[in-house]
């Protein structure tokens, strides 16, 4: 899977959350681009990148319930009517679009009656409408609230949540999660120092056995359900 990550942030170097996410990027399959860092937008180049991607991630801090201006400028310049749908070819159709948004307020603020009084889905509605117009698939948003307050354990979890959001098959089911880990385990074991590889392989084998056992249980249950429906 090829994932294009478009980051909109006027002060990237000063953002601890954006630096953290950059360090957390998966090793392969990612085309990372900082929109504010470009002198001028090369429309052909951007449209080619979009055509080549399977998944497009828009990543930004929430400024006044919207993305920073650089993302709107990119949209208005790159997503021309003709490119998106004007000639009825829909080159972005069936690609996935996901938003990684950071907020300074806690998650509970983003609901009716909450401090912000608006849900993130409502705030991001214009982006969702563009996605629909392009016949793309909108992914459930990955919201990162109050990054600065996360403890070490929460940050460790965020690394993998973010990596999975960029590269894991949807929907985010247990089966999808198992497949994502199974695909990466051999590479992760190879990276281990020689004296740790046996332990890595042992853990992997237990994980694989549990995956197989679950498949078997699900099959058995499906069979029982099928029979009881007669």
């Amino acid at each position: 899977m090829k994932t294009l990550v478009l980051v909109a942030h006027p002060h990237l170097a000063d953002s601890s959350s954006q630096q953290f996410l950059k360090e957390s990027l998966p090793a392969t399959g990612i085309d990372w681009e900082w929109l504010d860092g470009q002198q001028a937008i090369d429309v052909d180049r951007e449209q080619t990148k979009l055509r080549q991607a399977d998944r497009v991630i828009l990543q930004f801090p929430l400024y006044w319930f919207a993305a920073p201006a650089s993302l709107k400028q990119w949209e208005d310049t790159v997503l021309t009517r003709k490119f998106v749908y004007g000639d009825h070819r829909y080159p972005l159709a069936d690609k996935e679009l996901g938003v990684v948004v950071t907020t300074g307020m806690p998650g509970k603020a983003f609901q009716r009656g909450g401090a912000e009084g608006i849900t993130l889905d409502a705030a991001l509605a214009p982006l969702a409408a563009v996605t629909q117009r392009a016949k793309m698939t909108w992914l459930p948003t990955l919201a990162i609230h109050q990054f600065g307050y996360l403890n070490e354990s929460e940050k460790l979890q965020l690394v993998i949540r973010y990596q999975r959001y960029l590269t894991q098959a949807q929907p985010d089911s247990l089966t999808s999660r198992q497949t994502w880990f199974a695909e990466r385990l051999p590479g992760m074991i190879d990276r281990l120092p020689a004296d740790q590889q046996a332990k890595g392989k042992l853990i992997a084998s237990v994980f694989e056995q549990k995956s197989a056992d679950l498949d078997q249980l699900a099959d058995t249950l499906a069979l029982i359900k099928e029979q009881s429906d007669d």
Binding site: L156, Q157, F181, V206
Partner: peptide, 22 residues
């Protein structure tokens, strides 16, 4: 590496999820 540590700990959580589902 922080990201390597994150991977193994996330796998631990997934295995716990497998056990619950089983």
């Amino acid at each position: 590496k922080f990201t390597d540590r994150a991977f193994w700990l996330a796998l631990k959580q997934l295995i716990a999820e497998q056990d619950r589902r089983a």
